[in-house]
């Protein structure tokens, strides 16, 4: 017995198992577990309900509160919004829903532009990410097995180091007396520095750079599973590699392409740090608008309305991601 158990793991689980047995021998444990079981509450239910309760309380309920505050009146003071429900007398309850915050967002060109610009920026960055990430994932999946893990680790490693500092590194590279301009000027290619920092270009670059691992990993998983004999068969039948790629490889790795694109697109729409550090006044994005409404203008109802409107834009991409991932997980089983 001991040898077989050792084959599976270390001795530490034994300590846990002994501890469990000891706890179970106690009277209160028996009493509680019998009471719970008689109400249909088993260990299984407990395992499900603990993360469930946590996420409901700290993830689901907050959205309801955001929604509530987005239809509240703005008020000076703390907290800076009016209650929705007031009691005019003991029996009369007044419910006041103010859609003015949404109307305000809709009418002001600043917010409309910020939304349009966010979606455009996230879309362009996602496509660039896919164009760089696909060949990388393909190359990793087709390299020797002994190399694969190392290359994957190299893709992941930047993700483990501070996101903030990696975005900051680009300031030093892109600014007027930064690395690229210094290099080009010393080589005599240009006479004046090219303005790159505080442009849309810098924001695309920052997003592609920060989210590239999220694109490469699902693509790698999809490409690695691809049956190579299909490509051989296509080649035998006279299909050119480029055509074979679009007819076979791309459709069969569609799941990875969609998952990677959504993993980049969705957070990029609401990105704050990258446009704040690398973008200029022209590259207004919705995450930055929300931040400024909240921290600079202290307008909680408007910030909440901005958040809800952003969620409405993102519900569809999140739903797609959910479906793709559900299918991937289903395929494993």
């Amino acid at each position: 017995m001991s040898r077989n158990a050792r084959a599976v793991g270390d001795s530490s689980p034994f300590v846990l198992a002994e501890l469990m047995a000891w706890i179970k021998a106690l009277g209160p444990y028996r009493w509680a577990s019998n009471r719970l079981r008689s109400r249909g509450m088993t260990g299984r239910t407990a395992v499900i309900s603990v993360p469930y309760l946590w996420l409901s309380l700290f993830f689901l309920v907050p959205f309801l509160i955001v929604f509530k505050i987005s239809v509240s009146d703005i008020r000076l003071g703390m907290p800076p919004y009016d209650p929705l429900i007031t009691w005019a007398s003991a029996q009369v309850m007044e419910l006041k829903v103010n859609l003015g915050n949404y109307a305000f967002l809709w009418e002001d060109a600043l917010y409309r532009n910020a939304y349009a610009n966010s979606i455009l920026t996230a879309g362009i960055s996602t496509i660039l990410c896919l164009l760089i990430g696909y060949p990388m994932a393909y190359g990793i999946a087709r390299s020797k097995p002994s190399w694969r893990n190392l290359l994957l680790l190299l893709v992941m490693l930047p993700f483990w180091t501070s996101f903030l500092l990696r975005v900051y590194a680009w300031i030093g590279i892109l600014k007027n007396n930064g690395l690229i301009n210094n290099l080009l000027m010393s080589m005599g290619v240009i006479d004046e520095p090219i303005v790159m920092l505080q442009t849309n270009f810098a924001v695309y670059l920052g997003i592609v750079y920060s989210y590239l691992p999220f694109m490469v990993l699902p693509l790698y998983t999809a490409i690695e599973k691809l049956d190579l004999t299909l490509l051989e068969a296509a080649a035998d039948l006279g299909c050119r590699p480029v055509k074979a790629f679009f007819k076979i490889t791309a459709p069969l790795t569609k799941g990875g392409i969609v998952a990677g694109s959504m993993l980049v697109f969705i957070p990029a729409v609401g990105e704050f740090v990258i446009p704040a550090l690398l973008g200029g006044p022209g590259s207004l994005m919705i995450g930055r608008v929300l931040w400024e409404e909240f921290f600079n203008n202290r307008s909680w109802p408007i910030a909440s309305a901005v958040a809800i409107a952003m969620l409405v834009v993102l519900v569809f991409p999140i739903w797609i991601l959910q479906r793709v991932q559900g299918r991937e997980m289903g395929a494993h089983r």
Binding site: P51, F63, G270, L290
Partner: peptide
């Protein structure tokens, strides 16, 4: 619903998560 609740925070823009947590 549980699957959704565990995937959504992965991609949810941080400004939304931050704002909603604070308001909670």
């Amino acid at each position: 619903l549980l699957a959704g609740l565990t995937t959504a925070p992965l991609v949810m823009p941080e400004v939304i998560t931050g704002l909603s947590m604070l308001l909670l």
